[in-house]
């Protein structure tokens, strides 16, 4: 049994070493094959990274927003303060501050935008207001749901929060992400076809060798192994190269993006694929390469039988 296990690993290790040698001996071909996979993987991955970064950016802006809850004029200061205290205890809320009509008028006067106009008013036109600061982790959708809930409170006249643009942007991001998924599927199929076709050509080039191997008793698994390993390694190298492209893109854009954000008073920094991304892209490339080669070899190997004795 030990011998069989040893043989199991030995034949695979031998095939892997032989394939690695072939790839190293033909660096141009190896690089071109990997480059095609790299571009095909980097495009959807880059699009995904873009949506993640835009989401982070809009999340940051969203966090800066406050929600103004206008109460009915009939609501007393005591009832207003009680409602603010109740809202402050909600999990979605960080702080809730009650602003009475008088305090509001004083704040307006202090702002200096209206000059003496406020003094001419026969009575204070401002309603009681609760200024609410939502929790950072709350998404635009979550905040919208929470606001809808607040609107049902009898003392609340109206609620104001400028979420529309964030919601539109996030809806746009959903579309972009869907496009990214469709692009990823299309490019994954392209990788399968490209690597499959490469395996098919290799099989045709080595037809005589395959016939000979079949004649001396090689199993389909034995013959298939180098082709499948080649496809998987091409996919793996392609994935790693794709990660490198994204990392280079990130390093080229990170400073200008951070500078732009700084000019808007934001501390946003670009998030790249990170070191874990090399595993993700490499793994996806490996799987696609393996699958493409496996399908192609499975289809074409059966057609080759030894002809000469």
């Amino acid at each position: 049994m030990d011998t069989r296990i040893a043989v199991f690993f030995q034949v695979r290790a031998q095939a892997l070493v032989a394939v690695l040698q072939e790839l190293v001996y033909a660096p141009a071909g190896t690089f071109l094959g990997a480059a095609v996979v790299a571009v095909a993987l980097a495009l959807p991955a880059g699009l995904y990274g873009l949506t993640v970064n835009v989401e982070r950016l809009t999340g940051g802006w969203n966090r800066g927003n406050e929600v103004s809850i206008y109460l009915h004029r009939s609501v007393t200061d005591q009832a207003g303060r009680r409602l603010a205290a109740n809202l402050a205890r909600e999990p979605e809320v960080v702080a809730a501050r009650y602003v009475s009509p008088n305090s509001g008028l004083q704040e307006l006067a202090r702002s200096g935008h209206f000059g003496n106009t406020l003094a001419l008013l026969p009575h204070n036109p401002l309603p009681p207001v609760i200024v609410l600061k939502p929790r950072n982790a709350l998404s635009a959708q979550g905040l919208s749901a929470f606001i809808t809930e607040i609107r049902t409170i009898p003392d609340v006249a109206t609620v104001e929060a400028d979420l529309k643009w964030v919601q539109r942007l996030q809806a746009g991001l959903v579309v972009v992400r869907r496009i990214g998924i469709l692009l990823a599927i299309a490019l994954a199929l392209a990788i399968l076809v490209i690597i499959g076709n490469s395996a098919r050509l290799q099989i045709l080039n080595r037809r005589g060798e395959i016939e000979l191997m079949k004649l001396v008793g090689a199993t389909d698994g034995f013959i298939r192994r180098p082709f499948v390993y080649t496809g998987a390694l091409q996919g793996l190298f392609g994935g790693m190269l794709g990660w490198l492209l994204l990392a280079l893109g990130e390093s080229a854009l990170s400073f200008p993006v951070a500078h732009l954000a700084h000019l808007y008073g934001n501390r946003f920094t670009l998030h790249g694929p990170g070191l874990a991304g090399i595993l993700d892209l490499g793994g996806v490339g490996f799987m696609l390469g393996w699958l493409g080669a496996r399908i192609a070899v499975g289809r074409h190997l059966g057609d080759i039988e030894p002809a000469q004795v």
């Binding site: 030995q10 191997m213 001396v216 034995f222």
Partner: peptide, 11 residues
């Protein structure tokens, strides 16, 4: 050695 290699004979 090919007929031996295809049956997994040690190197």
């Amino acid at each position: 050695g090919l007929p031996l290699a295809v049956r997994g004979t040690p190197a």
